[in-house]
Every structure is written in structure tokens, then in C-alpha cells.
Design a protein around this nucleic acid. Sequence first.
DNA 1: TATCGGATCGGGAACGTTCCCGGAAACAAG
DNA 2: CTTGTTTCCGGGAACGTTCCCGATCCGATA
Lengths: 343, 343
Amino acid sequence: MSITITKIAELTGVSKSTAHRALSGASDISETMRQKILDCARSHNYQPNLSARVLVGAKTWLLALYGLDFGNVHFAQFLRGASRVADAAGYHLLTVSSSDKMNHLRHLGIEGVAAFFGSSSEIAGLYNLQIPMVRLIKQNPNGDEAAVSSGVRYGAALLVRYLLEKGHRRIGHLSVSQPDDMNVPEKLAGYQNALADAGVPYRPELVVSVDFYTERCGYEGARKLLSLPEPPTVIFAQSDILATGAYRAARELGLRIPEDISIAGYDDKEYAALLFPALTTVRTPYQQLGAYTMECLIAEIENRPRPSGTPLLPVLAERSSVADINLNPETENEKPCIQPLVR
Amino acid sequence: MSITITKIAELTGVSKSTAHRALSGASDISETMRQKILDCARSHNYQPNLSARVLVGAKTWLLALYGLDFGNVHFAQFLRGASRVADAAGYHLLTVSSSDKMNHLRHLGIEGVAAFFGSSSEIAGLYNLQIPMVRLIKQNPNGDEAAVSSGVRYGAALLVRYLLEKGHRRIGHLSVSQPDDMNVPEKLAGYQNALADAGVPYRPELVVSVDFYTERCGYEGARKLLSLPEPPTVIFAQSDILATGAYRAARELGLRIPEDISIAGYDDKEYAALLFPALTTVRTPYQQLGAYTMECLIAEIENRPRPSGTPLLPVLAERSSVADINLNPETENEKPCIQPLVR
DNA sequence: TATCGGATCGGGAACGTTCCCGGAAACAAG
DNA sequence: CTTGTTTCCGGGAACGTTCCCGATCCGATA
């Protein structure tokens, strides 16, 4: 089938040991011989058999990225950044989508695994592989040195600080009751921290928790918030898809966005800028996070210390779905009118 | 490190040949011996080393899905369907994102490759691997038995037929000038075929070609179409993202959707139902296509004929962005009013 | 001239698996 | 008792690579 080192040795009239010396860049070989073997290997497009190298425990330069939700744009960005770093360091990155598959693949010589958003049980399965692993999201709050944080708490606080600067004081929060997802309490914590820092009291009735990340749930949650005796002036949804539901709820109640009710999301999905009005949200630099995660993984494999410095933090994607109610006298006047509108 | 068949043989006091007979389900072994070896293997969680199996040319049950645009929802759906079939047939499916990576990985014992939307040069690289391959999209019009069609021509014709049924006769088409993308001429062909079947003459001025699949290009193309002396009553965009640009163009011109101008897309992206009004578009059953593609690939690997029957065809996602101008007298009356509105 | 050290190369084992072939029983038929 | 057949199991090679050890040659030194 394919050309082997034995074939190269035969063609050049040497032993496979010598051929291996030439191809591996060893020093104990004459320069003329090395050139002859290298030329022969190049002309036959020789590539060492990876499986044979795995068998003798040689370096395979194989890494795996584990993540289940392909189709997620964030995953794709993460992959792009990780792939770039892996390529630059000479590694090959393959992506696998289930942990039992990883289990069957551990004999293929994969040197390390990067995980993107795995649930705790799957992460445990990966740990059993006894392979270096770095994963993105902080799963358990108690210290996990193998994790790289995506900074959701910071991102949520960033957005809420922005809302406070825009004059909002009654900030509704659309949360999700997914026990597995560590992002939920992290975002809530960011929300609470930002309020506390500004001296704004936390009101539990302004936090509504829905079941799923769907447009419908966002709609229902927003209806609840808007029917409060004292409705919020802005709704901060934990994800853009929830925010789209809030858009529909506002439209149904005859509320203009952002004049009557401001809405903000999280994720900066591709459709966030397409909505009308364009949604203000938070973008996580997943590509840079992927690059950083891969740098950590490769450093661990090669027994080097982790790169210094922290990965990039989320940034605000400021658009037109949040109103400034600070120095706008007419909005100030309209504010009491919101209540009767919502009933 | 891991448990090997030699260890199992030592533990049960037999040779590795006998152990292999028990584990491979051979017939020339006593039942008591087989049970003893099987129990030992199970208790030690034995799994044969894949690399060693590759080396001796044994079956690896390894398949690869090649596709570059992760993050594409359609790719994820395709993967889901393919993965399900592969699992059911006992295969392991890994996904790789570049053809030179595949080149390095060919020694890992991958038995077949399924390709999703590769460009022609990359597909050629995969062909050089001399591995069974089935790919989704029809790249070159002249027969390609290794391809499974995604039915874009049928899907486009389906949508245009629907528009004709709704009474539309001046159907604008928003195309894209991407020479690599075979979808573009296929959709145009579907558009033209449907017109011809209905006896509606094809008017080149109603087909506008833009440069990229972006909202901005969709906007610009729609502006061109709407500023024609005789503007279309409906715009069929080659993708949903172009349709969102058409939405903006219509809004800017003060045209109501669908009362003044109907708009339809292609792809049924996640945001299609979130737009206002919800976008009528065409959904391709990528999950079923992935399953069918994988069935073809496995059949080819196992030297069986391809599964009979054709894969599922695209379906219409009927929403509210297309008006019925047939039996609506007031719309009939309004029809001449469109022209002065657009100027 | 005998010895030594460095440079250069070949031989062979090892990794874990599969496969082929031969051997040793056990048993039936002549 | 011999011969042939079946059942069951072990020995050893092969896959392609890497690594260790030893062999050869050559020039230099004592």
C-alpha cells in the first residue's frame, strides 16, 4: 500500500536503522547518506506510519478537542483558535463528540484532550483516560486547576454595570433552571455583584427563572416580569434566544423597544444584530479562549509552565435595544406611564 | 499502562493465541476456556489496542467525517444523522476539519470518509487517500457516483412553485456570484425550471447577483430589485441571511411584509422563525441526509450495494412572509399601488 | 605495531495484535 | 493395534516503527 521505511532502506541499499537515523535527524550518520535517504523518502512521499509509532510509544503529535454541540458558533470559534495554535506547534487536532468514543480512541495515541462545555459525568469519563486534559468552563466552584474560565461572571457584571450607567435601577433578570449548567449561577452572581457594587438593592422578584433556552420560555418569562406591579425598565436575559422571546412579549404588550422597555442578551449570536432593534448583548472571545486553552494543554504535555497572563475577557456588544434614561427628560416623564400600559 | 491480550493470557494461564480465539469469538475453543478468558477480560476492562490492529490490517471500525465549517447548524444536523447510523453499525466516527490533517491521519486505520461541502481541491486531496469516500454535494455536473445530492434544485423549484400557487408572477431572485459553490447554479436552475413548467417567461432583469452571503449584500440586492420600473411582488433569496437584508430594504422603503412585498429565503436557519414576520423558507433534512450518506459509505466499505430508495428531499417551511395574492380582492387592488410606492 | 576512540552502520528486540501452521490429545473406524 | 478425523491449543511470523547494542572501519596516539 503505502511506502514504508523498510522500502526506503531497500531502495537506498541501507538498513532500516540507518534510514531511520536519516529521517529522524540523528547525528551519527554521514551527510551524503542522509541526503540520499532524504531524497528517496521525499520522492516517494514517505510518511511514517502513525500506528506503528503509537505502538512503540513514540510521539504522535495528536490532540483531541472534545465537545458535543457542533453547530454551536461558539464551538466553531473555539475550534478555530485552538486549531491555529495546534498547527503552529506542529500538532494535529481532531474533534470527537462523545466520551465513549474517546474511550475507544485512547489507543490511537492521543496525547492530550481539550474539552469544551462537557457535562460533569462526561468530564469524569475523560479524566479516566489518564491523559493530560484542559477544559474551558469552570464546572465546580472549588478550585479546578485544569479549567480555563470563560469569564461569564465578569461578562454579566460588565453588562449590568453598563445598564446602571444608562440610568436603569430596576433591572429584570431572565434566568434558566438548568442544574448542570454552571453558567447560570455565574451570571446571576455577576448580576448581583454589579448591583451590590453600585449600592442598588437586590430584589428577588426581578429574577425570573424559566426551564429551557428557547424563544417561548423567554416570552413567558418576560411576560411575568412585565406584569409585575413595578415592572423593570430593562430585561437582562441570560441568552440571546431568551431575549428574542422578550422582544415578542414587549411587542404583544404594545411596548416599544427601547423607548418603553430595554432588552439585553448574552452570547452575541449571529442573529443578535439582525433583530429589530439590534440587540445589545455580551460577546465572549471564544477564538482567543480556544487558543489559550490549547496553549495550556501543549504546555502541560511538554512539561512547561502555563503561559503567563490571563485569557481575554468578554466584551460588550452595544447596539440599540437599551435606552439611556439618564439625561432624557421626556423618557423620565414617560417612565410612570409604563405601568398602566402593562396593566 | 493498559491491559493487553498477553496479560489476559498470562492471568488465565493460556497462550495469547487462545486468548485471541476467545475474544474474537472463534469456534475452535472449549466453552469453559472461553468463559474463563472472557470473564478475566471483562473484569480487567480489556480493550484491544487499535494501533496494533491497524498494523496487522485488521478492521478498525473507524470512519471520518470531513467538513470545514463547524458552527454550521446544518453540519451539526448532518453529523447527528451520520453519527447515529455509524454507531448502530458499530463504527466510530471522528470529524476532521482539514484535508492535510486527513493526510497525516490515513495511517490511523480510517476505513472511509464522508465529506460535507468540501471545495473541489480538498475533495481531490481526499481522493488521493485511496479510501472509500462518499460526499454530500454534487460538485461537478458530470456524473459523480460518489456523491449524494442534497436536492437544492428540487428545493428551489419547490419554493418557486409555491410562490406561483400564491399568485405571484413577477418573482425576483437574489443570487450569489460564488464560482466554487455549486448550490448557486442549482438553485437558479430550480427557479428557471419551475417558471418554465408554469409557462411563466424568464426575465433576466429579475435575477440580481450579489457578492457574498451577508445581510448587507442582501440589502443592496433587494434595493436593486425594488427599484426596477416593474418591481417583483416577491423576492426569493438564495439564503436566509440575504432575506434578512431584504427585510431591511423593504422596511426602509416603507413597504410592509408581506402586504406590499413578499420575501422568501432558503436554509431555514434558526433565526428564520424569529424574524418579524417569520420567514418562509426551505428546509433541507440534513440529519436524514447524513444518515443516508453514512449508509452509503458503510455499504461501500462492506462491499454491499447501496441502500435502495432516495434520501429525503427538502421541504417547505411555510410562515408568514409570503402573501397570497390570488383571491384577495383588496390585494389585487393594491397591486398597482406598489409601483408608485417604490418609485 | 598494537591500542584506542570516534564515526558510521547493521542486527535484533520490542510494542500488541492477528493469522497460519503444526502438535497433542481424544475418539471412531478399519 | 493402526489409521484417520475431529477438537483444542501453542508457537511463531508478520505489520512498521523506534531503540539499544554491538560491529566495522579509519585515523590518531603510544
